[in-house]
Amino acid sequence: MAIKDLLANGPIVVNIGIEQFYHDLKKQDAKVVHVDWRPSALKSDLLSKLRKLREGGAN
């Protein structure tokens, strides 16, 4: 959606993170859905391995 359409229609929001922001958008009658977001185990493990490699530690 073009920026002009975002400004014309108003925000319709996917909230990823702080749940308070979802409730505050609800209070303003905005259309919003909250994502109960968690990093995938795969991502976490990969990050952990990359960090260890960077630090020259165990692989």
């Binding site: 359409d5 319709i12 929001v13 909230n15 990823i16 993170g17 702080i18 922001f21 259309k31 859905v33």
Partner: peptide
């Protein structure tokens, strides 16, 4: 899928 017309993501992770 719940809000297909969504146009903005507010990301605070």
């Amino acid at each position: 899928s719940m809000l297909p017309e969504a146009n903005l993501a507010l990301i605070s992770i």
